[in-house]
Design a protein around this nucleic acid. Structure first.
Length: 403
RNA sequence: GCAGGGUUAGUGAAGCGGUCAAACACGGCAGACUGUAAAUCUGCUGGCUUAUGCCUUCGCAGGUUCGAAUCCUGCACCCUGCA
């Protein structure tokens, strides 16, 4: 505990699952796991005030090193006294390394990134090199800024320096995220690179900690890649698991239908006593699968992004408030929901706000969606504690996906 | 009253003899969104139970032409000058 960071498992469900509850301690507070970490890429959860994020039940927020490096500049966040102070979020914080942008601005630029197995694969799914805004080499990644096109270069060392300056409680190693459609040979090559980078991240963080002994402890999580291949995932789990990381992130393109299976391969290889974060998921079925396979925390842009476009979570699926049928529907988004939005506003009003492009619409929708997902995870945590997780999983998903 | 300009699908606005059911924008409808390139993107938007098909549209009524939203005549309304 001298580092200010720790993770303790409080209950293991068993019953053929790897599900568990735990407590993560960080310099900025505690996170009860499993937990959904709300994404606030640019040091703000889009359209939400910190009070609203807190009101929705969030325990932690995840920002992005690449975005803050570009704007306003990580040194500004450092001068402000760190991410938490800068954005007025007093609780625990994470930063992503910029690794995701290797994909989203690289081979996945302007492409659909998530996939279902069996989904039609056309030649449009991987961006041609000439169109990419991120090009990978052994040493790092050259980005063209999505803001102004200016060239920037990220290396594992720079990502660590940027994340160290930003000062989140948890930093992620800089990795290469591949597309499911990259061939096996490329996955092998990329994985070797991600592993070399993992070592360089550890070395750099060591240096930074030595150079700034008075800083609050920032945990470093290693990232397991390997796409959809069992041999690569297990190999990655062993390799990354053997390095002195404080916790682990499971990343990469994952076939949705095999998510639980893939996570399980990894978690069978990683040390059980450390925290496992899954990057970028939040659909209810994915949440249940991931937690069943041993995931402790996860983050996702989906609840807020989808909210800004009008979709809202209910126990019976995720409809779109823009639908003409909600024009004069004065019920709340979700009957019985105790979020601020549902306590005070109707579907008809929210539809009007979203249609009119009024920002308050994005705020209110985001409040509902983050609250809904967080509540779901709260319920899951409770069910693990009392041992009813598998029942909850079955009945909950059955209802959600029945229409 | 004279001269000139205008009237195009829900709105604005292209088109100025055939390739026009009619560009484009907005609006409308539907869909997508999983470590945020994302208040973004995609599709549809005259009718026909859906098609390399048919039918009806471009102020109204006539006419010229193989063929008109596009040319001519008359009418209606709007705008701008001059009286």
């Amino acid at each position: 505990m001298k580092s200010g960071f720790s993770f303790k498992i409080t209950k293991e469900l068993g019953q053929g699952t790897l599900a568990r509850t735990g407590v993560m301690q960080t310099p900025h507070g505690v996170v009860q796991t499993p937990a959904f970490v709300v994404v606030g890429t640019a040091a703000t959860v889009k359209a939400m005030l910190p009070e609203q994020v807190q009101g929705a039940g969030a325990q932690a927020v995840l920002a992005n090193a690449y975005h803050l490096y570009l704007r306003p500049g990580h040194e500004v966040v450092e001068q402000a006294g760190g991410l938490s102070k800068f954005m007025n979020w007093p609780g625990p914080t994470f930063t992503d390394s910029g690794g995701f942008q290797v994909l989203s601005l690289g081979s996945g630029y302007k492409k659909v990134l998530a996939m279902q197995s069996g989904q039609a694969i056309d030649e449009e799914v991987i961006a041609p090199v000439s169109e990419r805004r991120a090009i990978v080499d052994e040493d790092g990644v050259t980005f063209k800024s999505h803001l102004d096109g200016s060239p920037h270069r990220f290396t594992p060392e720079l990502s660590m320096q940027v994340q160290h300056a930003i000062g989140a409680d948890i930093m992620f190693a800089f990795d290469e995220l591949t597309s499911l459609l990259d061939p096996y040979d490329y996955q092998v090559e990329s994985l070797a690179r991600t592993h070399a980078w993992a070592r360089r991240c550890i070395a750099e963080v060591r240096k930074l900690r030595k150079a700034h002994p008075k800083r609050l402890y920032q945990a470093l999580f290693g990232i397991v890649q390997g796409a959809q291949h069992e041999d690569l995932r297990r190999q990655a789990g062993q390799f990354i698991g053997a390095l002195p990381f404080d916790g682990f992130g499971i990343g990469g393109a994952i076939e949705k239908d095999r998510l639980g299976e893939i996570v399980r391969w990894v978690n069978e290889e990683l040390p059980t006593d450390k925290l496992k974060h899954m990057l970028g998921i939040s659909e209810p079925d994915d949440i249940f699968e991931a937690i069943a396979s041993g995931i402790d925390t996860f983050d996702c842009v989906s609840p807020t992004r989808v909210a800004r476009n009008g979709s809202f979570y209910t126990y019976d699926g995720r409809p779109d408030v823009n639908g003409a049928k909600y024009r004069s529907d004065f019920k709340s988004l979700l009957d019985g929901c105790d979020c601020y939005t549902c306590q005070h506003y109707s579907r008809a009003y929210l539809r009007h706000l979203i249609k009119a492009g009024e920002r308050t619409g994005a705020t209110l929708m985001s409040i509902h969606n983050t609250h809904f997902i967080i509540k779901l995870v709260d319920d899951i945590r409770a069910s693990i504690t009392v041992g009813t997780f598998l029942d909850l999983k079955k009945t909950w998903l059955q209802r959600y996906y029945s229409n």
